[in-house]
Amino acid sequence: MAGIAVSTTINGDTIEYLCQPDETLLDVLRDRLGLTGAKEGCGTGDCGACSIILDNRLVCSCLVLGAEAEGRRIETVEGMAHGDQLHTLQQKFLEHAALQCGICTPGFLIAAKDLLAKNPDPTEEEIRFGLAGNLCRCTGYDKIVRAVQDAAIVMKGA
């Protein structure tokens, strides 16, 4: 079977790859491009561990086909930091211990980035509903919500 040639932008870089028609974008990112920051927790769009931003929209990359990325703009957790300068959300997740095992963390960071881009001053309830598509089994979400609240304050002041 011939692969489909795709040209797309990932974290600001132009990337080209071949993929099969039934291959998910998550599999392309992880298996073809070595971008293993996005995780597969379910493969059915229920856990959010594979969250990416596709043309300014938060999506589960397990529900997008690799071929659909043609001509689009993708942001993954690997592109959040600028060099050795962590994104404010990344720094706040560390300071607040908003991760234990850390497997959900890339998805939460991407979802929180998308949330704050659209709503820079969210209430606690808005944060909780904004992140309700991401499952965390370790933290009980308390410290995640606090990290996002703290990051929002810092980012507003920036």
Binding site: E124, E125, I127, R128, F129, L131, A132, G133, N134, L135, C136, R137, G140, Y141, D142, I144, V145, R146
Partner: peptide, 10 residues
């Protein structure tokens, strides 16, 4: 399993 909007601060 519980999601963020199901829970209060603990």
């Amino acid at each position: 399993i519980p999601v963020c909007s199901d829970l209060p601060m603990i």
